[in-house]
Computed example of a mutant assay.
Amino acid sequence: MTYESLIEAEAARLAALATDLSVPVPTCPGWTLAELITHVGQTHRWAAHVLRDRVQERIWSRQVPSGLAEGQSGDAAWLSAGAAELLDTLRHTDPSLAVWTWGPDRRASWWPRRMLFELVIHRVDAELALGIDPVVPAEVAIDGIEEFLHNLPYAAWVTRSLAELEAEGATIHLHATDADGEWTITQGPAGTVEWARGHTKGDCAVQGTAQDLLLMLYGRRSPEALTVYGDADLLKRWLSKAAF
């Protein structure tokens, strides 16, 4: 499947969950489903704007028209409309087009993958809020882990927090138990991060399904639900600074 088809499926799943928008979302403290839906729909419109207008400089999502009145929240229909706009834009944009991103790849091809996992994680947020056990297929979760690690060194708001750990040289090894996936994260100076695929020994090692590893990285699954070896305190402190 393509990123576009996965985005379409995930957007439909999230829209189907957007019934009672007053439900609190524990994994996004202070939000209800209304705020979550509004955030995701605004993000879709932001990405579509960047691609359609070939934006070259940083632009914040709040700077892009949402179609909502001031103070109004989005609903399922509004979310679906924004997803449709995004999908149409993605399908008609040259992946090699040079545009602004906040990640390492300054091309249009960066956006579909980022938008997919923005949706996956917030769909999980909505399901957890509604008492539904989320399911992320292993192959999607593996790609999500690598997308997270690929972008993490460029998330300045995260690396600033990681610098506070003063953990230069510390290593965390992730091992998926249900798919072919192993990664080692190395903390560098001033909050910088490096990562590599493969099996190595880390100061801390975490084993779990690909889905659980992905949700742990995003702060949606406690490491206590996984198998942790070595310096569990390092893992806990690193996760508290790294989730975005």
Rank of each mutant, 00 (worst) to 15 (best):
E194W: 12
E146L: 15
W31R: 10
T159Q: 10
A69E: 13
A126S: 09
I185M: 05
G188I: 03
E127H: 10
P29V: 10
W157R: 15
V23A: 13
A76P: 06
E35C: 04
L97Q: 13
C204S: 09
A108L: 03
W183V: 15
D203K: 12
S161P: 01
A48E: 01
V23K: 10
L6H: 09
C204I: 00
A15Q: 05
A11W: 00
L68M: 08
L130A: 12
A196T: 14
A15H: 04
T2E: 05
D53L: 14
K201G: 04
C28Y: 07
I59Q: 06
G144E: 02
R123S: 06
Q211G: 04
P153F: 13
V25W: 01
L33H: 09
T43R: 09
G208C: 02
E8M: 09
I7F: 01
C204Y: 01
A155Y: 11
F148Q: 04
D203M: 04
H173F: 06
L215R: 10
A81Q: 14
A205Y: 05
R54S: 11
D75S: 11
T93W: 00
Y3S: 07
T32V: 07
S240F: 04
L213G: 02
G230C: 07
L217C: 04
F148C: 01
D178A: 09
G202C: 06
E4L: 07
I185T: 10
H150C: 08
S161C: 11
H199Q: 15
A176N: 05
I59S: 03
G67F: 06
L33F: 06
R237H: 08
R160E: 13
L51C: 05
A242I: 00
P134L: 07
R107T: 09
Y218V: 02
A190Q: 13
W31T: 09
V135H: 08
I37C: 12
A15L: 05
W195S: 09
P104Q: 08
P26H: 04
H150P: 01
W31F: 09
E85C: 08
D203E: 14
F117M: 05
R62V: 12
L235A: 08
H39V: 00
I142P: 00
T209H: 06
L239Q: 08
T89S: 00
V55R: 14
R220E: 03
D143C: 01
L130D: 03
S61V: 04
G82S: 13
A170S: 13
H122W: 07
Q56H: 12
H39P: 00
T38C: 04
R106Y: 06
A163F: 10
W78F: 08
L234S: 03
G188N: 11
A138T: 01
A83T: 03
W46V: 10
D53H: 14
A48V: 02
H175M: 13
P95R: 10
I185S: 01
